[in-house]
Amino acid sequence: MRTGLLRVIGAATAAYGVAAACRPDWLARPVGMVGEQGDTHPHTDMALRPLAWRDAADGLAMLLAPAGPALVTAAAVRIASDVGDAVLFGRTVTGRFRRAGAVAGALGWAALTAAALAAGRRDPTPCPA
């Protein structure tokens, strides 16, 4: 497990989550949830804020959890959230390019977090000669 990388991912996730909770249009624009003028409806803002706070909370958990099972759990929640987002985006985002970008972004973060979890799990004992 690459604890340092997981902490960086957690910090980035927490910062983005707080920013997106304050500015839900940051989540709405890339997936096409805006009006003709590029603005978000208040109901859209209300629906997206919980997703942003979810990311902020999980990022904070990854940043502050002690190394070991707590950090692994926080990272697993992050991965599950990203995979869930990818499935949702893949089924609902309109436009091939926009949908592909949203799915790739979500799966990219899931893959990065999974790679940080998996790294270093090999047995460090050298092979006998």
Rank of each mutant, 00 (worst) to 15 (best):
T3G: 03
G4Y: 09
I9G: 03
T13R: 12
T13K: 08
A14F: 04
A15R: 10
A15Y: 10
A19H: 02
A20I: 01
P24V: 13
P24L: 10
D25K: 02
R29W: 01
P30S: 10
G32Q: 09
V34T: 15
V34W: 03
G35K: 12
G35F: 11
Q37S: 14
Q37M: 11
D39A: 12
H41F: 13
A47N: 14
L48K: 07
L48W: 09
R49K: 15
P50T: 10
P50Q: 08
L51E: 06
A52M: 09
A52L: 10
W53L: 15
G59I: 06
G59W: 07
L60E: 05
L60N: 06
A61D: 15
M62A: 08
A67G: 11
A67S: 15
G68L: 08
A70I: 01
L71H: 08
V72M: 08
V72C: 11
A74P: 14
A76R: 12
A76F: 02
I79C: 11
A80S: 15
D82W: 01
V83Y: 04
V83C: 14
G84Y: 03
A86P: 10
A86Y: 05
F89K: 06
F89Y: 14
G90Y: 12
R91A: 12
T92H: 14
V93I: 06
V93P: 10
V93C: 09
G95I: 08
R98A: 10
R99W: 03
V103C: 02
V103N: 04
A104Y: 00
A104M: 04
A106L: 04
G108A: 05
L112N: 01
T113D: 01
T113M: 00
R121M: 07
R121V: 04
R122N: 02
D123G: 03
P124N: 06
P124F: 02
P124V: 05
T125H: 07
P128R: 12
